[in-house]
Structures are given as structure tokens and as C-alpha cells.
Design a protein around this nucleic acid. Structure first.
Lengths: 201, 201, 201, 201
DNA sequence: TCGTAAGCGAGACGGTACGTCGAGTCTTGCT
DNA sequence: AGCAAGACTCGACGTACCGTCTCGCTTACGA
């Protein structure tokens, strides 16, 4: 896995002492802990090294800078978890509830905007980040795909756009407002997305 | 204007040399230029001072740190511009088109995610940022309010939620994908938001 | 003086805050103190900065590396002090006694070999070091010159060689033996240099 | 030989693979080569290991640190070679000529000051270094001893002091001046040491 | 009109973190 | 055991900015 590591050929055991897996995990744990405590921009590699009881060189041997490090630490946090109840509205509501719970109980809501903010000016980060984000959204696409097959939503719908419509309000709340998301607002958001703003005849 | 300045009472001219307005603007210009070139996290006050041909103290005399400085520079960029055609769908499409044009032709799309990313861990930034963001969204609310009055959309609708639904896809595209937004995708997004995902009977 | 400083034009007061003379001296003092305590090779710029209560940048602003810094600190230690009694043997014995006292009571005997050892591989150091050493030996030459004029020693003598003969044993003791020099050995050394090894008829 | 090695009892062959003699020599060769190229203070054990194609542990298994390693490498360089012509002046001139040739054609002149400079602050180095230096000077003492027995020089002369007088000018040239020694200056130096500075009657 | 208080560019100041390098130790698999 | 390779902790390197602080000017006001 370790998508952000600098290992030339993962799994191939070359000469010399192999990299310690405990150390790897200790660094990621320390990174997450510090992200929660001080946030991304106040996070220092030196601080991570101290917290993990590790030399700075050991961190730089694995990650070229604090960004890929934080991304890999971030990758340990939960994304969308698949739900398949046979009904789109139920699927969406349950998935969003779980996701929002994760946002409110982990540093996810804190870390994600930081990474997103850097992405614009850091092509390296962007290319590391993209597959992670895609993987996280996949269960949402799957649920929409199943709904198309069941005839619940229009056949010719662009699923990308549809997914944007559903997670959009969460993104807005996350990025433009407090960060914390009120779970009570999820159901109306899903209903709105499914039914549209116009009054039903 | 200069909401973030340290001036005790603007307009009250005490003894001594008054602050130069050219210098003030030169600093903001340099800040915007550097935000475009290197992004928020690589922006240094030292760099701004050099670019503006100004001493560092002159900057700190006006802004307590680089954050309020950047926010004020950001405040010079355009937000939503009011459109009132008498029809919600037209209003929304025109406003979004103009806004997206601004995103694609100014550093807005570059600067906004950077600021948003810092906001989470910086309460000072958050409180400075919030009124700026609110002001920017206001024309969108106004358009929705007029639509409610015209009976175009449901009376009992939470307008905050409705606005989120409309700008949500833009936010997703901005933060989770490339940054650049394809203007062709605006109309479908508005239509989707107004009609919902479900197939019309 | 400050022969090793990086100042472009000494004495010319350019723009900006001038460099603090107290800081300059505090750094030199700390350097000398640490040279005595830990020696040259264990001396770190970081340690000097801490001891002097100064930032590292303040040191590097004045000296390009620890070598010129140490040389300037070393320059504050005493060299030969002129003695003119009218008799060469008396002059030499008194000057050497004072010099050896300085060696045994200051870090001179500790610092000098360190600098000399680096000199070989560091042309920059060599060129900084040479005038300092020349200045230190000058009183010795002067005494020999006066002795030539008084007819005490041969007219055609190469004074460089003569000076080498006199300080040579000190150098040997310093570099090849313990570093500390026994003052009792000075008088015989001077007599030997003046009279030679061969038995007088 | 290898006076500085950590071997408990040389020649006693314990269990396991014996230490490779080629490796030992390759390390010493690499050390000398690097001493010449970059000097003592820029010499790194890592560099020696790379140059010798050897693991760092292999070096530390034999030498406790880079100091004894460098001293043993230094020990491979030539010292005074005995000359016995029956005449002191001839002996001294020939021995000094050969020694100075060695200085000018081997890294001796480069390495010796480096080691001497470290010696002051490194007691371990000092105790390793002392017997090596003593051994090198021995032929000089022997020549002086023979001259005493032949009545060429005074019976009550302190030979240590006499030796210092002879090699002193070389030490001065080596440590205080360029490092390179002009062979033409040797004969006058010897004559000066033997006859003294005072004009002969 | 002239002093004086503040603004100004410049850049030194004490700090903190950067990313690199080497020291000396430890851990692999191979010989 | 020895050995090459290379990861490990630790600590210093020299650099870059931070936000603060003098400097010697300049600029407009108010006495």
C-alpha cells in the first residue's frame, strides 16, 4: 500500500537492514496525534520526530516532506463506507451519517482542508492526493450506480455531477463554515438533492 | 475599508507623518502577486516587503501577521455579482457563470483554498474570514429570496441549505478536483439542483 | 581591525540597524571560553550562539564559518611583547618567558595547534592566519635586528632562520610534546641557540 | 604492527571467520588517500568505508574511532632514517634531507599538523600518538649520542634540548609557514644549530 | 517656521525549523 | 564469527523567516 513512500520497489528485500515497520507506524501515529493537537500548518517534522522518538533523517528517508507524510497519515482515517440497503435515499443517508460522524470524531475535518489548500500550489501533493480522494468517493458512486440500475434515478445522469450535488453541501459546510457539521442537516440535504428545489406539483 | 488594520480609529489624524496610502496599496498588490506565484503557504512577509519595496515593520504596523494581510488582499478579488432577471434559473446560471469566470481568470481559485485550509487551525483567521465569505454569498441569497417571493421555489425551504446545494458542486470541483472549473458544467448543475436527481414523472 | 569580518566597508555606516559591538564581543568571549573548555574540534557554532545568548545567524552574518571566528578570538590573545634591554640574551629570555607564561595561562597553547592543523587543508584559513602570525613574531625580529646593529650577532645572518632557531624548541614542545612548556627550560634554550651545540674553545 | 587495533591478542585464532588482512590494508590505503585529498577534519569514516568498499561496522570493529584509524594510517609514512657517517654534521644534514624529502613527497606534511592539532583536545589521541612520535625521533637521538661519545659536542648537553634545536626550524616552517620546506635551507639550519648565532672569534 | 512625533527603507537581532550529513550502533542475509 | 549494506538515534550544520528592534532619513502637523 504505502502509496506515498519513497521505497523504490516495495516488497523486494534488498541488501542492508530493512526499514522498521514499527518505526513507520510510530511516525504515522505521532503525525496524526500532532495534527489533532496543533493542526497542519503548525505541524513540524521536528515535532513528529520527537514525539515518535525517531531521528529526523528516518522520516525524510521515507517521505520527501511533511506533505506526503501527512497524506499517508490522513489515509489511515476512514472514508465512505459502503451501504447497500436496496434504496438510494437510505444508502445515502446512512453513508453520509457515518462519514459525518467520522469527520466530527477524527482529525479528518481538520486535516482535509489543510491538504486541499496546499494541493493547488503543490503538483506533487496533487498527484499523491488524487487517488486517495477517488478511492474515498467510490462507495458513493457504487450506490448511485445501483440506483441507476434499479431505475431510481435518471439513466442519462452524469454520476460525477450527481455525486457532487450530494457531497457538495458537506464540502461547503466543511470549507466555508465552521468545519463541524451538524448531523441533523444530513437528511434534508439528501432529500433536497433527490427532489430538487422546485416545489413538487 | 481595511477591516483588519490596526489603526485605532480610522480617520482620526494624530500627530506625526500620516501613513502612506500608496504604500498600503503596494503591499496589497505585492501580496496578491505573490499569492498567485507561490501560493499561500510559500508566501513570506519578507518576500512581500521586498516585492513592494517596503520595510517589514511597515507591514507589521498595519497587519498583525500575514493572515489578515492575505485576507485583505483576497478581499480585493471579486465575489458574486447580483443579477436580477426575474427568473431564478437565469439568475443562478448568470451569477455562477460570472463567478466561475472570475475563478478562472484571477487568483481566486488559487487563494481561496489556501485560506480555507488555514482557517481550521487559526481562529483569528476564521473570525476575519467569516464576514468576507458571508458578504460574497449575499447576492446568491438575495436571488433565492426573490424566487421564494415569486413562488418559484418552496416557501418552507431553508435558504442556507438551498444555497449550499447550488454552490456545492463548484466547491467540490474547486477543492477536490483540479481547481479549474469548466463553464459548460454550470448549466447542468443548476438544472440538477432545481429539478433533483429523481426522474420527473 | 576585525580582519576576518565580512563587513564590506568597515566604518561606512550604511542603511539599516548597525551591528552591535556588544554582541560582537560577546561572541568572541563565548568562543574563547568554549575553546578553553572543549577545545577547537568540539567547538560548535551552535554552542557559541547559546553561550553568547545570540542567534546562529548573527554569528554567520559576521564570520563565514567557525574558522575565521576562532582566528579572530585567537587574535585577542597576547603574542610576543617587545623588550629592549640593550642585550640580546636578556631580551630573548624575557620575551620568551612572558610568551610561555601566556601559553600556560591562556588557551593559546590549546588553540594555536588546532588552527595550525586546519591551516594545511584550508587556504582561506591560511591567508587569514598568516598576517596574525607575522605580527606576533615581529617583536622577536626587532630584537634580533637591534642585536645585529649592536654587532652582537653576525651581520650576514638570515634573521628568519635565526628566529626559527630560537622559537623552534618552543614549537617542538608545543606540537610534539605535552603542550605545556616548562619555564625553566627557556634559559638553556636561548643560550644553546646563541652559542650552538659545539663546545666553545 | 597495528598498535591501535582492538584485537585482544593478535594471532590467536578464535572461532568463526577470521578477519581479512586485505580488508585491513584496503581501509588503511583508503584512509591515507582521503587524508591527502581532503585532510583530516574533512575525513569521514563513511567516506573511508565507501572508498575501501567496506561496511562501516568493519572499520569500527578494528578501530574504536577515526582517530586511531588515522594514526595507524599515518604510521605507514616514513620517519627519520638512521645515517651513521662518523660525523655529526653529515649525519644531521643527510637525515634532515631525507626527512624533508619525505615531507614534500608524501602526505606527511599534510597529515602531521592535522593530528597534532587534534592531540591537544584528545587525550586518547595523545597517548596513541606519543610512542609513534618518539619512535620517529629515535635515529636523531642516536646520532647525537654517537657525537657525544666521539666528543663532537659537549658531554653535559641535554640531548632532548639539542634535538629540539635541530628539528625546531623544520617544525616552525611546517606549522607556521607554508607547509612545504625548501631543502636548500636545511644545511644552513644545521650549521646554525651547531655553531650558534654569535659570531665565531 | 520650525520642532517634533510618527512613518519609512534597511537590515540586525534572538529564535525556531528546515532538510542534510556524519558519527557510532544495530540488524539483515550471505560467506 | 566476519562481512557489505544500509537503517537507526542523535546532534550539528548553514539557511530562511519569524516578529521585534534600532538606525538615519522624510513628512506633515500644530505650537
Amino acid at each position: 500500500m504505502s502509496f506515498a513512500s519513497l521505497e523504490p520497489g516495495a516488497g523486494i528485500q534488498g541488501a542492508g537492514r530493512p526499514r522498521s515497520e514499527e518505526v513507520h507506524q510510530a511516525i504515522l501515529d505521532a503525525t496524526l496525534a500532532l495534527l489533532i493537537e496543533v493542526g497542519f500548518s503548525a505541524l513540524t517534522v521536528e515535532g513528529v520526530a520527537n514525539r515518535a522518538g525517531v531521528g529526523k533523517a528516518t522520516i525524510y528517508r521515507r517521505w520527501s516532506s511533511k506533505l506526503p507524510l501527512v497524506i499517508e497519515a490522513f489515509g489511515q482515517l476512514p472514508g465512505f463506507e459502503p451501504v447497500d440497503s436496496g434504496d438510494l435515499e437510505t444508502d445515502l443517508k446512512q453513508m453520509l451519517h457515518r462519514y459525518v460522524d467520522a469527520f466530527n470524531s477524527t482529525p479528518l475535518g481538520t486535516v482535509l482542508p489543510s491538504l486541499v489548500g496546499e494541493r493547488t500550489h503543490n503538483p506533487e501533493l496533487a498527484s499523491l492526493f488524487e487517488p486517495v480522494m477517488r478511492e474515498r468517493r467510490q462507495p458513493l458512486f457504487d450506490a448511485l450506480q445501483r440506483a441507476v440500475e434499479r431505475g431510481e434515478i435518471a439513466r442519462d445522469l452524469d454520476l460525477e455531477r450527481a455525486a457532487d450535488l450530494i457531497v457538495g453541501p458537506i464540502a461547503v459546510a466543511l470549507f466555508f463554515r465552521g468545519g463541524k457539521i451538524n448531523p441533523k442537516r444530513i437528511d434534508p440535504v439528501v432529500e433536497l438533492a433527490l427532489h430538487g428545489l422546485r416545489p413538487r406539483k
